[in-house]
Design a protein around this nucleic acid. Structure first.
Lengths: 215, 215
DNA sequence: ATTTCTGGTTTACGAGTGTACACATCGACC
DNA sequence: GGTCGATGTGTACACTCGTAAACCAGAAAT
């Protein structure tokens, strides 16, 4: 509690970043079992503590706010990918390092992850498309990273993307299930982490046997 | 157009199965880029052609309708699983047979599939949980089916489920992307089918190398 | 032939929603 | 010191929403 209430009926909003407050508020609300198109403008502005129309000062409409959410969610995720990358390189057991990093970051940004997973398929056009585009980007980065591993050095990028997409899909699915159990239930979480590791391991076992050229 | 308009302002609704009409109407509406909790009761009843309150004659509320949707969607899917099963057994190339069957049925029941994929993660508690429960059931059936294949005969069920979950997850993801391109764009569709086949093939390549006991 | 059940109708109400418009306050800039 | 743009506020309007209540037609059962 620093300085509050500067004017009269003025909700202070820390002077400057109401936009950020809106984005955070949206994540907060969406975290509570709501889908984006079930989120109303008024509800959001109420949560943030501003008048209904003030939202227009920052976004032309809800859809644009949705896109900003996607942007924000993936800004975090890209950073994660970076860190995961170095973690993997410096480890003798890349798979469990990967999963461990992932888990840490999923827990740290639960609402962002939640948003990505929920709106990836559900939802309304623009947002969904944006998410997919970004996810495909993540996939590409993963593909690049995969290219450094022994067996895959010579693989065509098509095959690399195939593997990357498989990995990303299963990780997203598992991450969502982890988030769905509350931060409680450590047992279920550990179980899911183990599942993730095993799936990745299975995939990597298939790699040496893959014939990169084609069928 | 058989006999219509029996009474006065009476929307006939084929006399008898308005309940089914509601379910179908819901699928229809949800197919058009809407999430379930963005679907209003009035909108639905309007679509079906009955008064707003008439919905209560068939469901206590929206949530129960949601559960009915899940039920209906998976009724179809279970049947699919059956057919896919026999298709696979009678084929020399189980993977491409699998994907082909899947594609056929996905196209035939596009709205049901759409619903499952969208509401699996997004959405509001009860519906989502129901979907997951059913999906886990499908996974189990797949696991059973997997147990018939050479290398996996002796695998513990935990490992079978691990593989099944990996397969189900990636197939759902790919199916959704196929549905998202309209029925047009045959090229993209073929590309995705190929991706599905390749991912499954990679997984199966890993299987002989897997050590069922543990790490 | 009358009753009762089922599935529908109409009307109504209060709450919530998106958007438009007019006004206030602050910080920055000349 | 005055102007101005950015960011708020408030009121207002026309909708839509969920739910309640009372009524109504046809089918089935007695």
């Amino acid at each position: 509690m620093s300085e509050r209430r500067t004017g009269r009926g003025r909700r202070p909003s820390v002077r400057g970043d109401t936009r950020k407050a809106l984005i955070d508020g949206a994540f907060r609300l969406l975290d509570g079992n709501k889908s984006f198109d079930g989120l109303s403008q008024r509800e959001l502005t109420r949560e943030v503590g501003i008048g209904p129309t003030a939202l227009y000062r920052h976004f032309p409409g809800m859809q644009e706010l949705g896109l900003a959410l996607v942007d924000e969610a993936f800004r975090g995720l890209r950073q994660i990918v970076q860190e995961v990358r170095t973690d993997i390189r410096s480890s003798k057991r890349p798979i469990s390092a990967f999963v461990k990093s992932l888990l840490k970051h999923v827990r740290g940004h639960r609402d962002r992850f939640r948003f990505i997973a929920s709106e990836r398929f559900g939802g309304s056009g623009a947002v969904r498309d944006a998410i997919r585009r970004e996810l495909r980007l993540v996939q590409s980065e993963l593909a690049i990273e995969l290219a450094r591993f022994p067996y895959m050095k010579e693989w065509p990028s098509e095959d690399l993307h195939m593997v990357a997409s498989l990995m990303v899909n299963s990780m997203v699915a598992i991450a969502e299930e982890i988030l769905d159990r509350g931060t409680a239930d450590k047992a279920a979480e550990a179980e899911l982490v183990r599942l993730a590791e095993r799936q990745l391991r299975l995939i990597t076992l298939g790699i040496p046997a893959w014939k990169p050229a084609g069928d």
